[in-house]
């Protein structure tokens, strides 16, 4: 993890409440797709943890959803503004674990980190299927970008307005795959986990204090003991997940 100043070079809406931001700065702390950055926002006490969608030697792309005051303030930031960022947080996905035909599954604002995962898997010569789940047509984003990577893209919508009607599990049952990588709301992750016996890597979301392992704000129980979503996560492997992650209460 490194703290640094990053300059916004682009900040634009993809849908009514999903925004894409490109940041220029030191990307060397990033080692795996699925890691996140933690952004200081003026007027907010805590930083805002946002997953990395894509990065290269000098630029990071994040895609975020406006859900509260912090992300609303982010959505109004103009290019040229400098941000104080903690970069290279969390474990990310281990693409070494992937089989020959991995499927990446993203739900809603869980889609962005799966872009970086799909890109890394394709670079390794894997045949990647991307299942992207949304509520409805007007919420869909990044379909073309996944196609441009060379993924076989399957869209699901809850209302059936585009693609397969229903949830990502409805598309999974029509897919041939060796293993899966997923990010999305916890009910989606749980449904996926229950829908397959294949090995998976699942990225979890939790309210965080620090984002770098100091405060124990985002702890969960796993087969391998207590883990911090921000430090030993956000990605957990399927065999270690305890769905009652707070069994002690």
């Amino acid at each position: 993890m490194k703290q640094g100043i990053y300059t916004i070079i682009e900040n634009k809406p993809l849908t009514s409440d999903i925004f894409l931001m490109r940041l220029q700065g030191d990307t060397s702390p990033l080692t795996n797709p699925g890691q996140f950055i933690n952004i200081a926002i003026e007027g907010m006490f805590l930083r805002r943890p946002i997953s990395v969608c894509d990065y290269n030697e000098k630029e990071i792309t994040i895609i975020y959803k406006v859900v509260g005051k912090g992300t609303e303030a982010m959505s109004k930031m103009a290019a040229g503004k400098n941000l104080d960022v903690l970069c290279g947080l969390g474990n990310g996905f281990n693409t070494e674990r992937a089989g020959e035909k991995p499927v990446v599954v993203g739900g809603g604002v869980g889609v962005p980190p799966m872009y970086g995962v799909a890109k890394a898997l394709i670079e390794k010569g894997k045949k990647v299927t991307a299942i992207l789940g949304f509520n409805t047509e007007k919420e869909i984003f990044y379909k073309e970008e996944f196609e441009a990577l060379g993924c076989d893209v399957k869209i699901t919508t809850v209302d059936g307005s585009v693609g397969i009607k229903g949830f990502v599990t409805n598309a999974l049952s029509q897919t041939e795959y060796t293993d899966y990588c997923a990010c999305g709301p916890e009910p989606m992750l749980k449904a996926l986990y229950n829908a397959t016996d294949k090995p998976g890597q699942l990225s979890f979301e939790e309210r965080m204090g620090c984002g770098f392992g100091a405060c124990m704000g985002c702890s969960c129980k796993t087969v391998y003991g207590n883990k911090r979503i921000c430090k030993e996560g956000p990605v957990l492997v399927s065999e270690e997940i305890l769905w009652d992650k707070e069994a002690s209460k």
Binding site: F45, R207, G209, C215, M216, S219, K245
Partner: peptide
């Protein structure tokens, strides 16, 4: 293990934690 999550809330000029002595 401490308390169930969420354990963190943002406040004006501060934060709430309910980690619970993990």
């Amino acid at each position: 293990f401490g308390n169930p999550t969420p354990r963190i809330a943002e406040c004006y000029s501060g934060m709430i934690n309910s980690v619970g002595l993990q």
